[in-house]
Structure formats: C-alpha cells, structure tokens
Design a protein around this nucleic acid. Structure first.
Length: 599
RNA sequence: GCGGGUGUAGUUCAAUGGUAGAACGGAAGCCUUCCAAGCUUCAUACGAGGGUUCGAUUCCCUCUACCCGCUCCA
C-alpha cells in the first residue's frame, strides 16, 4: 500500500492539473462521468506535443515506417479474428462471502459435502430469507459449514446469525458451482464485456452490432496489404497509428491512468520469420547482452528486433524528459505472456501511486508494452478473411535456391512445425492444420511467408500523466524580501512544454516597454507557443509560468530601451525556469537561441 | 461489481436547522526598475434528486463523482 505521504503528492498534482487547466473531469457540470477525462488548454498542448514527438520520431524521421489513420468502428469480424469478441464475452461468477470473482470457465472442480440453509435469524429477532449453500470437504464437521454460513448472513446485517437448515447435506462430486476460496455457492454467471457496443444504422438489432475499438493495433493488421502495396515498403517495415481506443474497465482508477476512453500510439513492425532470415543470411543474429543493438541489420531475428524496439522506446522517453531511473523495464514471465506472444517487455514509470516492493522501491505502472507477437495477428486475419496476408520476398527466393538440400529440408521442417503449432493452437483440426502447414512450408521455398510482428504499444494519456508527475517539483525560493517561500514548478522538457516562452514588459504602465514586449511576442509567435502577460509584479508572473511549466521567460526592461546602458540597447532578460537565472540576449539572436533550446 | 472514506468559491479550508466566511488564486484599476510586494474594487461555492421540517448546505434516503482496499486490466 502506498503511504499517505505519496497519496498527498498525487492529490497535489491532481489539484495543480485542475488549477492550471491541464485536466478536467469530463461532463463536470453534470456531476462527472466515471472513467472519462478532458484536457484543458495546457493539457491539450502537452498531449499534442507528446503525440507530435512520437509521430515525428516513429515515421517522419524513419525510412521504414509508414503512418495510418483508421476508423474507430470497424467490421465486427476484425474482433472475432483478434479474439476480442470471445475473450471479452467471458462469463464471470462471484463468491458471495469473499466477493472474489472468477471466470466461469476457470473455476476449479471441487468435491465434498454440501450443506444447505434456507435463511437465518439472530438473537435480536432479525431474519434473512436468503438461501445459502456451502461445500466442505468430506470428513469435515458441520461446524465448518456453519462458520461460512454465519459469515454469509453477517454480511446481510445479522449480528449473531443462526442459519436454518434446509434439508439433508448432500454429497457432490467434481462441481464448479462452489467457491475455491470459501466453498460458498457462487453467483450465477454474468457476461462481462470490456468492449463498448453500438449499432450501425437505424435498427438496433444483433445483426447491426459493432464495437468501439479496444485497441488501435487491429486496424493496422487489417490494412496491412493496402499499406504494403501503396507505400513501396518491403519487410522489414512498420505501420504506425495514433488514435482513440475504448475499454469498459471495471474500475477506472488513478486519475487519467486507467480511463474508459484513451489514446494509443502503436507501431506494428513487420519482420521476416527467423527461418527466412537464416535462409538469406546463413545465420540469425541474437542479442549478445543488454543495451541498444545499433542500426538494424539484415541478419536480425525477432529477438534482436524486439530488443532494438525496447531500447528505441526507452530512448524516446529519455528524449522527452523521463530519465531512465524513473522507468522500469519489466520482462513478462512466461506464464504472464498472452497466448500469441513470444516475449513482452513492459516499460513502466514510477508513478506516485505505484505500489512498492519489499525494499520500498516504487514498482511502476505500465506506459508501454513491447510485444513480440509472432505471425499470430496476420495469420488470424488471413484465416478469418480468407484473403492472403503473406508477402513475396524476392531476396528469400533467390537465396533459397542457393542453399544445400539439407539446409532446405531443415528450414522447411522447422517452418512447418511452427506453422502447425500455431494452427492447432487456434483450434484448426489436426488434419487440416497439417495440410495448411505443409502449403506454408512449400511457400517459404518460393519466397512467401506471413510476416512476424514486433509491437511497441504506448498509452498517450498515461505518458502525459507520467510527464506531469515527473515534472512536478516543490521548491523553496526567496521572495522579494528574501523570505523563503514554496515554489511549485513543472520542469517539463522544453520539447513537450505546453508554452515554450512567456514574454513580459517589466512594467505595464510604461507604453514603450509594452510596445516593445508586444513586438518580441509577435517575433516569436510564428515559431512557438508564446504567452504574453503584463499583469502584476514581475515575480508573480514568473511564478505563474512556473506552474504552467513554461521553460523560458523573456522580460523587456529599461536596458532594452537603451535608457540605462547604451550598449545593452535591444537586449532582453532571458529567465530560465529551473535555475531561475537570467542572461541578457540580443533581440536579434533571441529566436535562434530559443529554437535551439525547444527542439 | 463489493467494502470503507470524502464531496462547501478555481484551490485549500471554516461555520451553521433560519440559504455561508477566510486564505491563496482570478479579473479590473492605481502603484511598482526582475522572482507570488502594497492599496482599492469586483466576481465566484453548499455534487444531483427525493424525504422529514414552517424552513435543510446542515438530519434521513437514493443517485452520482472522487480517493483507498478487493476485483478487473486477453
């Protein structure tokens, strides 16, 4: 459990977000709506900067990634292929005593004696007519059944309940109706769907059901062929997308961290299967140790690509002001992996509300998952749509012809085996799977395969919140009279700061100062977000910008006008947010100096 | 969905069964030659709906939102 002090910190951050216009509760004047948040003026700028930085680094500055912007509502068949319809429609049951929930199909079978009660009464005359059943292992006395029953009726408001028997105890074998926790009879299964449902067209019938996408990834897979054909890309290459996604979470929590409407930045990077790499290069390069593996090479297998993207992503976070020390690189354990994943690395940020480990260190919350998804996704869409999602790889075809027959047989066999495993795992009958896997293996020899995927998938809102938490600082700073006062400052990296520079005339009742300040404002405005402020004492204006996270302040004073020292004419004060130090800069150099700092 | 806590200006807090006050913040003005100075003026709140009552921000109920613990988060 997080200690009270850190909770207070989070409360102060939330309060600042409201006060300065970073984040508001959605629909606030109507009492709000659970799990939805709006971004105010500063928050909108911040979030936009985050997305711009991501988009620029992911696609505009890379040769090998193309962008996509797909719709939120898509054919429901996409979610059948991806597994979301099935998985999200799981039935849940609940233990009435411990309140724990289980997936109905995952309750362990249990055997024993079942005691039944029709209700209970207590000494004060209160009664409950709720029926209750509990199973105890054979051989245990009736008292243990009574104990659970009493707990059940206590939860219904009876002080010292005396449960009323309802018929003879019965022996029950291998039943999934009873709680593995308490033995209590579980609630009836209820469907629980994490996807938001809607209807396309005017008729609200089951035929017209559609879903708001629970992730942006599937649109990329569904448009894989179109992008491949129009972008003149070849494997290995990626498709990236930024967009809204929706999940009807049970419990939205921790401010904007888990929301029901959120935004994702996802890259699906398509690579050759390892067998193809081996055919082309003779060997598959594998990671030699931790750290960034450098520029991509032809002989990289999925593990190298996976490590490459993990490191690229961490560099990105460092680049926008999240130091490595605030991040945690968490390698999911085999039992935690989704069924399609070969490896997943979660990149976590240490939020103030994160739980702590036994050493008292913050464990972090997920900002991004970098998953090696094999060829699962495209294969699923190929199977469900009946349209080939494979690619033809000229280089593979040429290299294959030069291999020894032994090597060809070896690679064919290995490729066959992984394809067969995938097919049978997803429910294809053995006979059919064997036939299809054989075709796939024969295709590899002709240069055909379904690409594998490395998926770095990040949450924009989580990252925005992380940046705010990381930037938040409370410091002591002297006021005009030298008395120490608390200063709250958001130390955003200039790249993502909502406002880059604030421009002030030292005094507002001097028209010459105001005029000059407005000229400076207009000089900078075409190039960056500028905030002009002339109200109140200069120190007050600096502090206001500290809370907004504005990295630079420019003040036009009497030196600027050349009144005090002629050699300082046309220079301004440039004030640094973090150090609060000031330097004099000539107005003609100002734009260049600032642009260098905010890029 | 369950359990616990909370809900009064933008924020942080008061008071009260007879419809609310402060500090900081905000706006306007005066003043002010670099870090929330001073003076004047102004605006802004009882989460929503019921009930009890002559009268409810206050008591009761329901809903809602936020926080915490479960649960959930393929």
């Amino acid at each position: 459990m997080a200690d009270p002090k850190t909770n207070d910190l989070m409360e102060r951050i939330v309060s600042l977000c409201k006060r300065r216009g970073f984040v508001f509760q959605s629909s606030e004047i109507y009492g709000g709506i659970n799990g939805f948040w709006d971004y105010g003026p500063l928050g909108a700028e911040l979030k936009r900067n985050v997305k711009d930085q991501w988009w620029r680094s992911m696609t505009q500055q890379r040769e090998d990634v193309a962008g996509l912007e797909a719709t939120i509502i898509m054919s429901p068949r996409i979610w059948e292929a991806s597994g979301h319809v099935q998985t999200f429609a799981d039935l849940m049951v609940e233990c009435p005593v411990t309140k724990k929930r289980f997936r109905a199909d995952q309750v362990e079978e249990s055997s024993g004696i079942v005691y039944k009660f029709s209700g209970a009464k207590d000494a004060s005359g209160k009664t409950s007519a709720d029926a209750f059943e509990v199973m105890v292992p054979a051989g245990k006395p009736k008292e243990s059944a009574l104990k659970v029953a009493k707990q059940f009726y206590q939860l219904r408001g009876l002080a010292a309940p005396e449960p009323i028997d309802n018929g003879e105890p019965a022996k029950v074998d291998k039943s999934t109706l009873y709680s593995p926790d308490s033995g209590a009879r579980l609630s009836d299964p209820r469907p629980f769907n994490l996807m938001f449902k809607t209807f396309v067209g005017p008729v609200e019938s089951e035929d017209n059901v559609a879903y708001l996408r629970p992730e942006t990834a599937q649109a990329i897979f569904a448009q894989f062929k179109n992008v491949l054909e129009t972008s003149r890309q070849k494997v290995p290459f990626g498709i990236c997308q930024i967009g809204k996604a929706f999940r009807n979470e049970v419990t939205p929590r921790n401010f904007t961290f888990r929301s029901r409407e959120f935004e994702q930045m996802e890259l699906e990077f398509f690579i050759r299967p390892d067998e193809a790499v081996e055919a082309i290069c003779g060997e598959v390069a594998k990671p030699k140790g931790p750290g960034h593996p450098g520029e991509p090479q032809t002989n990289w297998g999925w593990q190298m690509w996976h490590q490459y993207w993990v490191e690229e992503r961490i560099r990105f976070y460092e680049n926008i002001g999240l130091p490595r020390t605030t991040l945690v690189e968490y390698w999911q354990k085999p039992e935690e992996l989704a069924h399609y994943a070969r490896a997943t690395v979660d990149i976590l940020f240490k939020f103030p509300f994160s739980k702590k480990n036994e050493k008292g260190e913050l464990m972090g919350e997920e900002l991004e998952g970098v998953a090696a998804r094999s060829d699962f996704d495209l294969s699923q869409h190929q199977r469900f749509s009946g349209k080939s999602q494979g690619v033809f790889d000229e280089e593979l075809k040429i290299s294959w012809a030069k291999l020894t027959p032994e090597k060809q047989t070896d690679l064919t066999k290995r490729y066959y085996e992984t394809r067969f495993k995938y097919l049978t795992k997803t429910g294809v009958q053995a006979e059919q799977a064997e036939r299809t896997a054989k075709e796939d293996a024969a295709g590899l020899a002709k240069g055909n395969y379904v690409p594998h995927v490395i998926e770095p998938s990040a949450g924009v809102d989580r990252l925005t919140l992380a940046l705010i938490c990381n930037a938040y600082a409370e410091e002591q700073a002297p006021d005009e009279k030298g008395k120490m006062e608390q200063r709250i400052v958001l130390k955003f990296h200039p790249r993502i700061a909502p406002i880059k520079v604030a421009v002030f005339p030292l005094l507002k009742n001097r028209p010459e100062l105001v005029k000059k300040a407005m000229e400076v404002r207009d000089l900078l405005r075409p190039h960056m977000t500028v905030f002009y402020d002339e109200a109140g004492a200069i120190g007050r204006r600096y502090r206001r910008q500290d809370e907004a996270g504005t990295p630079f302040g420019v003040t036009i004073d009497f030196e600027t006008l050349g009144e005090n020292a002629p050699d300082q004419k046309d220079t301004v004060t440039l004030r640094d947010r973090d150090s609060m130090t000031q330097t004099r800069v000539n107005i003609k150099d100002l734009l260049g100096v600032l642009l260098e700092k905010v890029r």
